[in-house]
Nucleic acid binder design. Structure first.
Length: 803
RNA sequence: GCCGGUGUGGCGGAAUUGGCAGACGCACAUGACUCAAAAUCAUGCGGAGCAAUCCGUGCCGGUUCGAGUCCGGCCACCGGCACCA
């Protein structure tokens, strides 16, 4: 009797074995492959099967690459600074340093249950001073390059987290973290000039092997648009108002102008009789939260009493204020062409402003306009010297024409804003800046980094716009590194994203205390070849990382411009129709499943649950199927171990087809069908074994190697049982030969009028005529004799068309 | 509103270039083994019909010898963006 499959014993044995005999070794000759997981923030609730999914996918892919002969960079670390960690610590009443350390050790234990081939020598932790030294160093470099600057402005403020937020962290007017409504607060903030990289961030997206969805999201977020700035003189005054427009072709149709209530001229443009109303409007607008402003779809506005002069035709057009114009996009002022813009149309209709059509629709002027005609196609009308031109052509040419006439210029605009980089919280990297009354903001000298985060008793956020660090006088008070005079430290900390924007560079040289990463190692091991994680970071982490990478490229630290060559977003796992979460009580913990079914089964089921890129529903009973499969294959392998069967024609064919099917599906990243493929071939082997009285070693061993990335423990055990002394991971991924899988006969379907009526076996070499006559015989009873057409698709189908 | 994604049995899901729809698995049913149960093995399993056969991939229409797949028009659900001039 063969030994039954005992997952506990096998998995324990091989986990120990791998610890003693690492299988992923850099011999200096192998090419590298860097497969990276988005590192987790060590939360208190631990991992559930949804988290496992990404880690299993990356591990399977990594081991596959290893079998293809790569030296694998497959590290893991901890994104441990930031709001979630701090909020958790506050809730539990412990210091974040302590709770973070505890959570790290728990999650590390759970991750080890996956038996992923992580190289723990490369581990990094963003809260480790030896790590954040370099996070601070990058900031200092950015400061020196003029990319980090201080500015007082109204920023997004989360009243619940009591800190400022970046634009990217505001979702539908709410805090990305806690969901509280974000308000505006005027604060002096550190900003990073990500906008300087807008064009490169956009351009370089093209060459990335990333999901189109993510590229699109980044493209939209950067929001590049082409247009023109046009200068309008204010009637009777020396003021000039510059507007930004993407539709300069419609300039003759501008019948009014709207300024954002925050526009610098807003107040001064108000004439005596309009002053009270204007000031009232500006005040009310300032009181609205961004959510209110978003939700008030009905247009509001107030007339200033002043007029601007359209520089093309010298017409006077009224200047209004309205909060549908955003102060921080373009110039904060727009020219309004109600005939060709929905929002302007709505506004003009509501306030009785004239509407002048300048583009003919279907060659005509619209009689009773009920909505704006927003297409840039049609002939220009009512447009002076532009009459008769094609709008789409004019749209492109107008900026230069305007520039020549001297009242405007061609411009490009972006939605992307500079990155609000300071947080009024304790648990983050201190910003390494000293404020000196004489020298201004001075960076902490590079050799003095890391600037340690002081240990404190009370680290609760103050809510005043000041960081808790501001209370620590002995820390705040220092001397200026420049002139030596008494000075004060910057007390804001960096956002959660600071460390994660570059951590992937550090893994490969995590003990280097002289450089962020050595040139040699960077060249040898970077960049990341495959990056696996959830889609939720599409415009946060993934954009910031690209920005940091480009900056580090510019200052010569690294020699590549993009951090992640290929990106894969795994879908989420839900249960009972909801995302897995503690509060919903639908969390499935892997610990118990590993105990009952084993890590190998859980790994397989994580893949089998559905296409890896789509969200999937967890079925508690589903794991039984893969567990049975492993048991069945184990039994087949054990039963045939000592039979000494020789390969037969049939098993050779099966072997080559098996390799082909698994490899093709794996390359296509169709991991769920790889698993079903294994099951299919397992069933087929049972069939053949039954027929032949056994099956050859060669086929079993091939299957075992193919399984190794998926079920490393049981594959290793079978490999050893088959008499091999070396690790299965030192083997090469098997290759297939098309010539060895051709069949003598093939089965084709026989259709009449496109409907399948029968099947027929024909020689693989059969000609069209032979195939058709065999097919006719198979459906002879159903033929009317009135055949119109006969179609033969080689190897697949014969279709007989009859009346 | 705009942009993506998805829609196939009781369920999760398979289906090269258009070529036998439902692979594989779960659940279920029947049988074998068992005193019995579990496990395992075998068989069946889209719907209607005794059957021949007919109907079936969100809905309507089209192209084609042939459509889950292509084209046109809708519907539903999920996700992203949302007054960006």
């Amino acid at each position: 009797m063969a030994t039954p499959y005992n997952h506990k014993e096998i998995e324990r044995k091989w986990r120990d074995n791998w610890k003693k005999n690492p299988v992923n070794v850099d011999d200096g000759k192998k090419p590298k492959y860097y497969c990276l997981d988005m590192f987790p923030y060590p939360s208190g609730s631990g991992l559930h099967v949804g988290h496992w999914r990404g880690y299993v996918i990356s591990d399977v892919w990594s081991r596959y690459k290893m079998l293809q002969g790569y030296y694998l960079i497959h590290p893991m670390g901890w994104d441990a600074f930031g709001l979630p960690a701090e909020n958790y610590a506050i809730k539990m009443g412990v210091h974040p340093k302590k709770s973070t350390a505890e959570n790290v050790s728990n999650i590390k234990r759970q991750i080890n249950e996956i038996s992923a081939i992580y190289d723990w020598d490369m581990e990094v932790n963003t809260t480790d001073p030896e790590f954040y030294k370099w996070t601070q160093w990058i900031f200092v470099k950015m400061f020196k390059e003029g990319l980090a600057y201080e500015k007082e402005m109204p920023i997004n403020w989360c009243p619940s987290c009591k800190t400022g937020l970046a634009n990217e962290e505001v979702v539908n007017g709410c805090c990305e973290r806690c969901g509280a409504q974000v308000t505006k607060k005027n604060l002096k903030q550190w900003m990073l000039k990500i906008t300087k990289y807008a064009d490169r961030l956009l351009e370089d997206l093209k060459d990335l092997d990333w999901p189109e969805k993510v590229k699109k999201m980044q493209t939209d977020w950067i929001g590049k648009s082409y247009g023109a700035e046009v200068d309008f003189k204010v009637d009777g005054k020396s003021d000039v108002i510059t507007v930004y427009t993407t539709r300069p072709d419609t300039l003759y149709g501008a019948t009014f102008m709207v300024l954002a209530p925050e526009h610098e001229l807003a107040k001064s443009l108000a004439t005596e009789e309009n002053k009270a109303l204007v000031e009232d409007y500006i005040y009310k607008a300032s009181m609205k939260s961004s959510v209110d402003r978003l939700q008030d779809k009905e247009k509001t506005g107030v007339f200033t009493g002043s007029y601007a002069i359209n520089p093309l035709n010298n017409e006077k057009i009224p200047i209004w204020l309205s909060d549908y114009v955003l102060a921080d996009y373009g110039t904060g002022a727009i020219m309004c062409v109600p005939a060709h813009d929905d929002r302007d149309f709505e506004f003009a209709t509501k306030f009785g402003i004239p509407i002048i059509q300048v583009i003919a629709k279907d060659g005509k002027e619209i009689e009773n306009m009920t909505e704006a005609y927003t297409e840039a196609s049609g002939t220009m009308i009512n447009s002076g010297e532009w009459n008769g031109m094609e709008s789409s052509v004019l749209k492109k040419e107008a900026p230069e024409m305007i520039e020549k006439k001297g009242f405007g210029r061609k411009t490009v605009n972006y939605k992307l804003r500079d990155w609000v980089f300071s947080r009024q919280r304790y648990w983050g990297e201190p910003i390494p800046i000293v404020h000196c009354p004489k020298c201004g903001a001075v960076p902490v000298p590079e050799e003095e980094l890391p600037l340690l985060l002081p240990e404190v008793e009370s680290y609760q956020p103050t809510g005043t716009g000041e960081s808790p660090l501001a209370d620590i006088e002995e820390w705040v008070n220092t001397t200026c590194p420049c002139c030596g005079a008494p000075a004060k430290r910057e007390t804001n900390t960096m956002p959660q994203w600071a460390g994660s924007s570059w951590y992937f560079l550090r893994y490969v040289d995590n003990k280097n205390n002289k450089e962020l990463v050595s040139k040699e190692k960077a060249e040898k091991y970077l960049p990341v070849d495959m990056y696996i994680g959830g889609v939720e970071h599409a415009v946060l982490h993934l954009l910031y990382s690209r920005f940091y990478t480009k900056f580090l490229y510019d200052i010569g630290v690294i020699n590549f411009k993009e951090p992640f060559t290929r990106l894969f977003n795994q879908g989420m796992i839900g249960k009972d129709g909801a995302k897995m979460s503690k509060s919903k009580g639908n969390v499935v913990s892997p610990d118990e499943l590993v105990n009952d079914y084993g890590c190998d089964s859980l790994r397989l089921y994580e893949l089998f649950v559905g296409p890896p890129e789509l969200d999937s529903e967890w079925d508690d009973r589903g794991i039984d199927g893969v567990y049975r499969f492993i048991n069945r294959f184990w039994k087949l392998a054990m039963d045939n171990k000592d039979k000494g069967m020789a390969p037969t024609d049939e098993t050779v064919k099966i072997r080559h087809r098996l390799i082909k099917d698994i490899t093709t599906r794996l390359e296509a990243f169709s991991l769920n069908t790889v698993v079903s493929g294994f099951m299919e071939y397992n069933n087929k082997m049972y069939e053949v074994a039954k027929k032949q009285g056994g099956i050859d070693k060669e086929l079993i061993e091939t299957m075992t190697i193919l399984l190794a990335p998926f079920t490393p423990h049981v594959a290793s055990e079978i490999w050893e049982q088959y008499g091999h002394t070396g690790s299965i991971f030192d083997e090469k991924w098997p290759e297939y030969d098309e010539a060895k899988m051709v069949e003598d006969t093939i089965e084709i379907a026989v259709q009449i009028n496109g409907k399948t009526k029968n099947t027929v076996e024909i020689p693989a070499s059969a000609s069209k005529e032979e195939a058709i006559s065999a097919a006719k015989e198979a459906v002879s009873g159903k033929l009317t004799g009135n055949i119109v057409k006969e179609i033969y698709v080689p190897g697949r189908i014969v279709n007989i068309v009859q009346k």
